[in-house]
């Protein structure tokens, strides 16, 4: 196993190609549940969890599809796997770790339609990652999501109480402008390289 390779995949997923701010995957929950800090953190951890699991499962499912010559069914198969996975995780948590289940609450079912999760499964196939690389990419992609949503939520909490915005920019538009400035900061990472 090549550690530098894994390191560069992780760094790429967290900073250089951040799922939200550079690749635009997962914008809906990013903009939707970032009004309060604690919900943002909950959503972030739920996404890490599901993205890691989804990468692993979709990798196996893809092997099966390739073996059966059914690659064109990827999209349908992946979304079904993810939907089933989210449902399963929900039931499992409810039974085994009720405290975590309550903390994540409504965010779990929402993850099915988070395009970062389906996106990571499709990107793993596109990049020809092996099993370990896929899982690492999934988890660190989720970490990148957590990082972005936590930063964004803390800015929005401040904006809500202290900033005076022009009337027509109130609410969503100013959040988008904020996200744009964050994306600008993150595009500064694009020169970063791991040897």
């Amino acid at each position: 196993m090549d550690w530098t390779n894994l390191l560069s995949i992780s760094l790429g997923a967290i900073l250089i190609n951040n799922f939200i701010l550079v690749q635009f995957l997962g914008c809906c929950p990013f903009l939707g549940v970032s009004k309060k800090m604690d919900t943002a953190v909950g959503m972030g951890f739920a996404v890490i969890f599901v993205m890691g699991l989804a990468s692993a499962f979709c990798y196996v499912v893809n092997l099966l599809l390739v073996a059966l010559d059914l690659e064109f069914m990827q999209t349908v198969a992946f979304i079904l796997v993810i939907a089933a996975l989210v449902q399963f995780v929900e039931m499992f948590l409810q039974k085994m770790i009720p405290s975590l289940y309550e903390a994540l609450g409504v965010y779990l079912p929402l993850i099915t339609t988070n395009c970062a999760v389906l996106g990571v499964a499709l990107l793993n196939v596109q990049e020809n990652y092996n099993f370990i690389e896929s899982v690492v990419y999934g988890i660190t992609g989720g970490v990148g999501f957590l990082l972005a949503i936590v930063l964004f939520a803390s800015i929005r909490e401040r904006l809500a109480v202290s900033a005076e915005t022009p009337k027509c920019f109130e609410g969503f538009p100013i959040a988008l402008i904020t996200a744009g400035l964050m994306a600008l900061a993150f595009s500064g990472f694009s020169g970063l390289q791991v040897w």
């Binding site: 701010l21 550079v22 690749q23 635009f24 022009p166 009337k167 027509c168 920019f169 109130e170 609410g171 969503f172 538009p173 100013i174 959040a175 988008l176 402008i177 996200a179 744009g180 400035l181 994306a183 600008l184 595009s187």
Partner: peptide, 25 residues
């Protein structure tokens, strides 16, 4: 170049939605 980068997506959409809210108001 800024507008072709991801930044441009956020900024342009933000301004369009602001325009929409202004028109609605």
């Amino acid at each position: 170049l800024l507008l072709v980068l991801p930044v441009g997506g956020f900024l342009t959409l933000g301004c369009l939605i602001a325009l929409m809210q202004w028109a609605q108001g």
